[in-house]
């Protein structure tokens, strides 16, 4: 039996102090929830879905509940899930008013012959399998509504907004289960005041996430357009195929992204042997990892705390 591993992130950006504690608590709780699945002999796929759902339900993160509003004041969500045994994948982009986009992505993978559904088509599919639509008010916090009104007054470019303290966080998870299967999941509400229909990296296979039993699993976060340009998730795994460790592969890929397209971001990685990493070039990224009896977590660069599970 392999030692199962689960790593989660709550988004790479300049997380303000006021959100720091809640972000760390959120990723720790999600990591614990996912690791319970793995320790019961559950699959990596189930574990990443549970961990991401938990963060989607947590208003501190920009995914599901707590999502940001687009220029029209609506919520549009993106998510992907992928399993490394068969390379099966499911994704939704620009789906409106769904509490748990990651589970809808999984339904796309398991109940259709497609990988990705977008816009109204994704909502029609949700309806057809009985996934309820929730009112916008239920997904958006009072603070987000205020922030949105504030920023609506200014024409702020997405990049400026991203690089400022005001908000972008994606959530994600990667896991290796006892059977040697890896999986990844990523979910996001995107960037505040994004154009209607803007799709970032999250739902795109190879960018927002990738999982392959022969090389490992990755979930990405950060400036979506930059991640897309370098297909960050697949790039990290390519470096691992070339013999780099999870840590080296994530670091050199993020470095490349910073140099080539001036983008900041973060990634969590797990290899088929249980080697894992949580790396970022932004100011902060809340992350947590469970392996064996240990829970590791951190928020600032080079920070790693450890506590015992249970």
């Amino acid at each position: 039996m392999m030692k199962a591993v689960l790593v989660v992130h709550g988004g790479a950006w300049a997380i303000p102090d006021v959100l720091a504690e809640a972000s760390v608590a959120g990723v720790k709780a999600a990591a614990r929830a996912g690791s319970v699945i793995l320790r019961r002999g559950g699959s990596a796929l189930d574990a990443v879905e549970v961990a991401v759902r938990m963060m989607e339900d947590n208003v501190v993160f920009d995914a599901g509940h707590g999502a940001v509003l687009n220029t029209d004041g609506e919520v549009e969500l993106d998510a992907i899930i992928m399993e490394g045994k068969t390379l099966g994948a499911g994704a939704v982009s620009s789906v409106r008013n769904i509490a748990n986009p990651v589970s809808l992505a999984r339904a796309v993978m398991e109940k259709t012959e497609h990988i990705m559904l977008t816009g109204r088509g994704a909502n029609l599919f949700a309806e057809s399998i009985g996934v309820p639509t929730v009112p916008t008010q239920a997904l958006v916090t009072e603070e987000e509504r205020k922030e949105w009104q504030h920023y609506k007054k200014y024409a702020v470019g997405v990049k400026e907004l991203f690089n400022s303290q005001c908000g972008h966080d994606t959530v994600g998870a990667v896991a290796l289960d006892a059977f040697g299967n890896v999986a990844c999941a990523t979910s996001t509400g995107g960037i505040r005041n994004k154009m209607v229909g803007r799709v970032g990296d999250s739902p795109f296979i190879g960018s927002g996430g990738y999982a392959d039993n022969t090389s490992g699993a990755v979930s990405c976060t950060g400036h979506g357009e930059s991640i897309l340009k370098v297909t960050l998730a697949r790039l990290i795994l390519f470096h691992m195929e070339q013999g780099k460790s999870a840590c080296e592969a994530a670091d050199c890929s993020l470095q490349y992204m910073a140099e080539r397209v001036q983008g900041g971001g973060g990634a969590i990685v797990v290899s088929p042997t249980g080697d894992w990493s949580a790396a970022f070039t932004t100011e902060r990224m809340a992350w947590a990892a469970c392996k064996g009896e240990s829970l590791h977590y951190g928020l600032n660069p080079k920070e790693m705390f450890e506590e015992t599970l249970n």
Binding site: S94, G119, V158, K194, V196, G197, E225
Partner: peptide, 15 residues
Amino acid sequence: KTSHVCLTAEGASQF
């Protein structure tokens, strides 16, 4: 013309 990479469905039509 945008700072984005991908626009989808109705949003793409609006654009």
